[in-house]
C-alpha cells in the first residue's frame, strides 16, 4: 500500500498530503507519524493540507488523533494550509477538531512551532556561515553585502 512521506527537518516532522485520502492511508499516516516522532525525538509536526479539496469527518478525526497522539509523545502538531471552502464546510458539518492547532501557511506554522519548541532551522546555521563569508567579501569592496545580510536576518526572524 502507498504511504504518505514524512520528512524530517531539524526537530520537526513535515507531512504534505497530496493525494485524495483513502481511509486506510489516513490510518497508516497516524501510525507512521507516532513511530517517527519517537524515533526522531521530534518536537513538532507540521501537516500541510493545502492540496486537500475536502476534509470529511474521517479525515478530521485523523487530524485530531494525530494532534492528541503527538502531544502524548511531547510534540506539538500544527495543521497548515486549510482551504477556505474546507473550513466553511467543517464548521457546518459540526467538526471542530478540538486540540488541533492551525496556521494559514507553512511559514506561519513554522513560526508557531518555532516560538514554542525553539526550533533551530538549518537556515540559522546557513546565516552564520554566510556572515563569516560576507565579512571577508566586504574587505574586497563588495558594497551589496551588508544590505543582503540585513535582509536575510530580517527574513530569518520574521519567519
Amino acid at each position: 500500500m502507498d504511504r504518505i512521506p514524512i520528512l524530517k527537518m531539524g526537530n520537526l516532522l513535515l507531512v504534505s498530503i497530496q493525494v485524495d485520502l483513502q481511509d486506510q492511508l489516513a490510518l497508516a499516516l497516524q501510525d507512521d507519524l507516532s513511530e517517527r516522532i519517537v524515533a526522531t525525538g521530534a518536537r513538532g509536526v507540521l501537516i500541510d493540507i493545502s492540496a486537500l479539496e475536502i476534509v470529511d469527518s474521517f479525515i478530521g478525526r485523523m487530524l485530531s488523533t494525530i494532534a492528541a497522539l503527538s502531544r502524548l509523545l511531547d510534540a506539538e502538531t500544527v495543521v497548515v494550509g486549510m482551504r477556505p471552502a474546507v473550513a466553511i464546510t467543517l464548521v457546518e458539518l459540526g467538526l471542530y477538531m478540538p486540540g488541533v492547532r492551525t496556521a494559514l501557511t507553512l511559514e506561519h506554522g513554522l513560526a508557531l512551532l518555532g516560538a514554542e519548541v525553539r526550533v533551530r532551522l538549518p537556515e540559522d546555521e546557513a546565516l552564520v556561515d554566510l556572515d563569516a563569508d560576507s565579512a571577508e567579501v566586504t574587505d574586497l569592496g563588495a558594497g551589496a553585502a551588508p544590505n543582503g545580510r540585513s535582509a536575510l536576518t530580517e527574513g530569518a526572524w520574521s519567519g
Partner: peptide, 11 residues
Amino acid sequence: VDQTKMVTAAS
C-alpha cells in the same frame, strides 16, 4: 463552497 459541501456530504 457548495461543491465542497456537496462532495463532503457525499463522502
